Simulated assay, not measured.
Amino acid sequence: MSNTTPWLDAADASDVPDDDVIGVEVAGRDIALYKVDGSVFATDNLCTHGHARLCDGFLEGHEIECPLHQGKFDVRDGSPTCAPVTEALRCYPVRIEAGRVFLQLEG
């Protein structure tokens, strides 16, 4: 099914700083883009616990810390890694092509 799911242009790859997070809007969705160890990851930008924007949080290694209640998620798979969060983030496939970050939002 992923062969028919479109890849959507999300950002210039150079706009995603090393070991940091930015927020972008893609097809009307608020998305967080992270770059860790040279790889880019994408999740929903809204914390599943406190409804705060994760791009305002702190990235340490593969964990993003919510700025509201300090819950943490693994940006590679969205899993919660620290209370009070218990619900995983939705993650999206990422592809870098011609210096651009592309995401699949459906599928």
Rank of each mutant, 00 (worst) to 15 (best):
C66T: 02
G50D: 11
R100C: 05
C91Y: 01
V26N: 10
K72G: 05
F41L: 02
D15M: 13
S2W: 08
A13Q: 13
D12S: 14
T48A: 06
A27E: 14
F41G: 00
R53M: 05
D18Q: 15
D44N: 14
E87Q: 14
D30P: 01
A27K: 04
A98R: 11
A27I: 04
D19V: 05
K72T: 13
E106C: 01
D37M: 05
A32V: 07
D15Y: 10
R95C: 00
G50Q: 14
E60W: 11
F102E: 05
F58S: 06
Q70M: 13
H49L: 09
M1Y: 06
D9P: 04
K72F: 10
A10W: 11
G61Q: 05
V75D: 09
P80T: 05
D9E: 15
V94C: 00
R53A: 09
G38V: 05
R100N: 11
Q104N: 00
E60L: 08
I96W: 00
T86N: 00
I96E: 10
L54S: 03
G78T: 07
P17T: 12
E65I: 02
G71R: 14
Y34I: 01
S14K: 15
D44R: 05
F58E: 12
Y92N: 00
R95A: 01
L54P: 06
T48Q: 15
H49F: 14
G50H: 03
S79V: 12
F73T: 04
E87M: 08
L59F: 00
V26P: 11
H51M: 13
V101Q: 02
C66D: 01
E87Y: 13
A42W: 10
R90E: 07
V16R: 08
A88F: 05
S2V: 06
G78F: 05
S2Q: 12
